[in-house]
Simulated assay, not measured.
Amino acid sequence: MMTRRHELWTVLWLGTTLVAACRPAGERVVLGNGTPGVAVGSDTVTPAAQAGAQAADFPPPAREVADIVAPRWTAEDDRDNAGEFDTVVKLARITRGQAVADIGAGDGYYVARLSPLVGSDGVVFGQDIMPEYLALLQRRVVRDGLSNVRVVLGEAHDPRLPAASVDVALMIHMYHEISQPFALLWNLASSMKPGGRLVILDLDRPTYGHGTPPSLLDCELSRVGYRRLSRRETGPEEYVAIYVAPTPAQRPTPAAVSASLRRSPCRSP
């Protein structure tokens, strides 16, 4: 039997498909930072950062990868009532003037709330690998006049964010959906400012159940040089883990990452 959450995901997926199908091919769009882009079908094409390491330079994870099922985790009112955004922002110490990247931004729940928080002297990168989700996000950016938001189409192994540009990166209820975590984390580190923090909100459950056991998360991130600063339980099965990204000098080479994982793979407990 389908659960209520699965029913919500199905409705959201269908809604996303219909919205994308209504966008004319070649329609001109304007990104949140004023840069013109082109919508091709459901694709929002944006200027991308220089490509980083390739997926083939790293092994795949030794655990199941959850499917990407919807542009949002659950209803926005429910998340607001639970205080999710406020909790994450407080733990992440996000303040005015910072550059924040929402990796897997979907249709923009965090982006819309981060934009006024960081203000006109800050920037929010709304990044995703699903063009149809970015089409929804782009419409929200234009509708709400979020002039400090940049919409970025990434890849499964590379967020395609500008180098040394991000103070805080967020991965909200999506780490378990990353099919190339070691390449993605390695490339993300290139986009982080010195001392930049990666904040991950997930559930303590198997990855096939749309969660990530904390010990598995620690293992995968540490292999790429990320160091955990804190982890706090924020709800039933839910936690927020914060890591400091490695500098280029601290980050192991792709070959070293691969050799380490061959010796001792990161497996689910």
Score class of each variant (00 low, 15 high):
residue 17 T to N: 12
residue 19 V to Q: 08
residue 20 A to L: 05
residue 26 G to L: 11
residue 28 R to G: 09
residue 31 L to V: 07
residue 32 G to M: 06
residue 37 G to T: 05
residue 38 V to F: 11
residue 40 V to I: 13
residue 41 G to E: 05
residue 44 T to M: 11
residue 46 T to M: 09
residue 47 P to K: 05
residue 47 P to H: 07
residue 52 G to R: 01
residue 53 A to H: 05
residue 59 P to F: 01
residue 59 P to Y: 01
residue 60 P to S: 10
residue 62 A to F: 10
residue 75 A to S: 12
residue 75 A to V: 14
residue 75 A to C: 08
residue 80 D to V: 06
residue 84 E to F: 03
residue 87 T to P: 03
residue 89 V to T: 01
residue 97 G to M: 07
residue 99 A to N: 14
residue 99 A to H: 15
residue 104 G to I: 02
residue 105 A to G: 12
residue 107 D to M: 12
residue 107 D to Y: 14
residue 108 G to W: 10
residue 108 G to Q: 08
residue 110 Y to C: 02
residue 111 V to P: 03
residue 116 P to A: 03
residue 116 P to I: 02
residue 116 P to L: 03
residue 117 L to R: 15
residue 124 V to L: 01
residue 125 F to V: 05
residue 126 G to F: 02
residue 131 P to N: 11
residue 135 A to T: 13
residue 138 Q to T: 08
residue 139 R to D: 15
residue 143 R to F: 08
residue 145 G to K: 04
residue 148 N to Y: 05
residue 156 A to V: 11
residue 158 D to V: 09
residue 158 D to I: 11
residue 158 D to K: 09
residue 162 P to E: 03
residue 162 P to R: 07
residue 168 V to D: 00
residue 169 A to H: 00
residue 174 M to L: 14
residue 174 M to K: 10
residue 179 S to K: 10
residue 179 S to F: 06
residue 180 Q to N: 12
residue 185 L to K: 00
residue 186 W to V: 00
residue 189 A to E: 01
residue 192 M to G: 01
residue 193 K to F: 04
residue 204 D to M: 03
residue 205 R to Y: 06
residue 206 P to L: 02
residue 210 H to P: 02
residue 212 T to D: 00
residue 214 P to C: 04
residue 215 S to V: 09
residue 229 L to G: 15
residue 248 P to Q: 12
residue 250 Q to L: 13
residue 258 S to M: 09
residue 260 S to T: 09
residue 261 L to R: 05
residue 263 R to W: 03
residue 267 R to T: 15
